[in-house]
């Protein structure tokens, strides 16, 4: 009830014993238009709130963050960073790929050749490991040639060396490029890894196209990879064999 509706010429009539009443044009109204309902005001649901702002970063803090970022960048570019591939089922199935598909940006484009490819499996065969710090059940993936005789750990692959970003040999980098493609190939042929307990592998098989059906979304991906393989001459079946 807005106070503006208060009649100008409305005369005040007092009924005995019943309190104040207003009358507009001779008609009694049963409420008091002068009553200010906004007083006392109800507490606001979302009161004014001053958002505390932090001080801007100092030079040293910025420096610190920059260092962290560059380290993170090199971890992400390194062999150990891995994201979960689309074919991995974890927990509840999220929304299907088709449902979240963006028709404007989701289509395969030529420029996708250049996008950074993320690994779905860490690439462990690029560097030497101190095997005594790992349980035996992991040795097969770290260094397949490792053996233990009388407590002395022997390894057949001596030629591997650590690589530090910025300090690679040039042929190391070439190797890495071909190695990456080799790995992608390995992703498509999981049977070349050690045989695993059946049903888990099936998942991957299901997702692998046998190449028969036309699949627009993978048109360029496949083309690109194949081209790469052809170029490479298929010489990277051995995977880690080239790191000498």
């Amino acid at each position: 009830m807005a106070p503006a509706s208060k009649p100008k010429g409305g005369s005040r009539v007092k009924k005995e014993g019943k309190g104040d009443l207003y009358r507009i044009c001779g008609v009694d109204i049963p409420y008091d238009p002068e009553l200010e309902l906004d007083k006392p005001k109800p507490t606001p649901l979302f009161p004014e709130y001053k958002v505390p702002a932090s001080k801007p970063l100092t030079a040293s803090e910025k420096d610190q963050v920059a260092r962290f970022r560059s380290l993170r960048e090199s971890i992400h570019n390194g062999p150990l960073y891995a994201i979960l591939g689309d074919n991995v089922r974890v927990g509840k199935p999220g929304n299907k790929a088709a449902a979240s598909f963006n028709p404007f940006e989701g289509m395969s484009k030529y420029s996708q050749r250049y996008t950074k490819k993320r690994r779905t499996t860490p690439k462990l065969d690029t560097r030497p490991y101190v095997l005594k710090f790992f349980p035996k059940e992991l040795w097969s993936i770290l260094d397949p040639t490792a053996t233990e005789t009388n407590g002395v750990i022997g390894s057949g692959s001596k030629g591997k060396s650590l690589r530090i970003p910025g300090y690679e040999k040039m042929d190391d980098i070439d190797l890495e490029i071909s190695g990456d493609e080799g790995e992608e190939k390995a992703k498509r042929n999981p049977e070349e890894d050690e045989p695993l307990e059946g049903e888990e592998v099936d998942d991957e098989f299901d997702d692998v196209d046998d190449g028969g059906d036309y699949n627009a979304e993978q048109y360029f991906d496949d083309g690109g990879d194949d081209a790469g393989d052809d170029y490479d001459g298929g010489g990277d079946d051995g995977g880690g064999g080239e790191y000498f």
Binding site: A82, R89, V90, L138, P190, D193, E204
Partner: peptide, 9 residues
């Protein structure tokens, strides 16, 4: 719910 290979890696 991952494959043994992924878990080991």
């Amino acid at each position: 719910g991952l494959t043994p290979r992924l878990v080991k890696h």
